[in-house]
Write a protein that binds this DNA or RNA. Structure first.
Lengths: 216, 216
DNA sequence: TAGATTGTTAATCGATTAACAATC
DNA sequence: TAGATTGTTAATCGATTAACAATC
């Protein structure tokens, strides 16, 4: 009746709340700036919270999830905290991926190459990366053991290209296309629906503009 | 003691849960495809849910938020439903914005122009839009009554460019830069932290890869 | 009619927030 | 020491899910 509760050797894999996971990179960015610009040694949740417009208690909870340990009265050691978050998010060893935005290497993502069906684009460069024809994709994935595919094609071709990636052995797909794609259960899909975000923004804007009018 | 509960004339502005707001465009996309490809007249929550991998009851709740009305036993009229969502999200009249991704016009966002500090890029085109020098930004915003600014600059310049936009009268900023920007309360800011999303994905990937190893 | 599906009210679940004890 | 700040346990709040009545 031990309920295989052997907490001893290996840590139970706690599920981290997604909102927390999304806030951690924000703290990270902030801490790096604080560290570089101000050379700050210690920082408190109160400070982080007021700068980032997050409640201090939430900051504390989030950092706790990332296994950060602070000192009462002093706060958290900034340098150590940066390292802790890096380790927790696995940013120590970069993962290879296929095209995306620039500036992700800092987050442990190394963009390897870009692909396109359009022959006119093949051979040109985007964000400093050569564009190859999609037919080269399977080979490339295998040879360089790429783990993440970034899907930025129109709805009509999304499933087809996802299939190509999966067949070539990709382990996760970052999907910017507006349609749901079907993949085997072992492949992870992260949907990035920018249209959804835009909706949130424009809805707020509409309400604000209306309010502005009725207040007049 | 009426609690200004005059529900009569004008609808109380209900706050729509953000998750719902994010799912609505997904339904919309899906419905349009179903309508165009299959020419389907009626559709049930059960169907939408199983196709989109969402619980039927959640679909129903979401559609209810968008003021959609269905018929017991039959489901929702697809064409009508598309129109309802369009109206609810305000996609009938497009809002002007400054550069971003392609394909947003469908979502009521019309990308007007792109700006850059780099003189070498000025005059060239991105996604079919001319790139202007940032010095032209204030004029452009005013002349064309642009409502939304899309901020895609490096962290170091984010605040500066946000200030420029605000001064020129922009009402909302879609911020893709990794830093928090300060704006007056009447300006709406939507933070689009792609690094956050990437974290969610790569965390899942790491866990999956580890699990794969230990299962071996 | 019978049964599938909507609409509505209640229960559950998880993230956020609050309260407070521990500690440097 | 006194007080700010962490760490932890409990309360709140809101979204999701369940249950069921209404209806075509």
């Amino acid at each position: 009746m031990e309920e295989n509760d052997q907490k001893g050797t290996e840590e139970r894999i706690r599920p981290i709340p997604e909102p927390t996971l999304r806030r951690l990179p924000v703290y990270y960015q902030y801490l790096k700036r604080k560290h570089e610009e101000k050379g700050l040694d210690y920082i408190s949740c109160t400070r982080i919270g007021s700068d980032l417009n997050v409640l201090p208690i939430q900051v504390r909870k989030d950092l706790q999830c990332a296994d950060a340990v602070g000192k009462p009265k002093l706060g958290y050691n900034v340098k150590e905290l940066i390292g802790t978050i890096e380790t927790f998010l696995g940013w120590n060893n970069t993962t290879e991926a296929l095209l995306g935005y620039q500036g992700f290497r800092e987050y442990g993502l190394d963009i390897i190459a870009a692909f396109d069906i359009d022959e006119k684009k093949v051979g040109t460069k985007v964000a400093g990366r050569s564009i190859f024809h999609v037919s080269k994709l399977p080979d490339m994935i295998r040879r360089m053991s790429v783990k993440i595919g970034v899907l930025t094609v129109p709805a009509a071709h999304a499933q087809e290209q996802a299939d190509t990636m999966v067949k070539a052995g990709i382990r996760a797909i970052w999907n910017f296309s507006p349609v749901k794609i079907s993949v085997p259960p072992q492949v992870i899909v992260q949907h990035e629906n920018l249209a959804s975000s835009l909706v949130v923004l424009s809805k707020k804007l509409t309400l604000a503009l209306q309010a502005g009018v009725s207040e007049r």
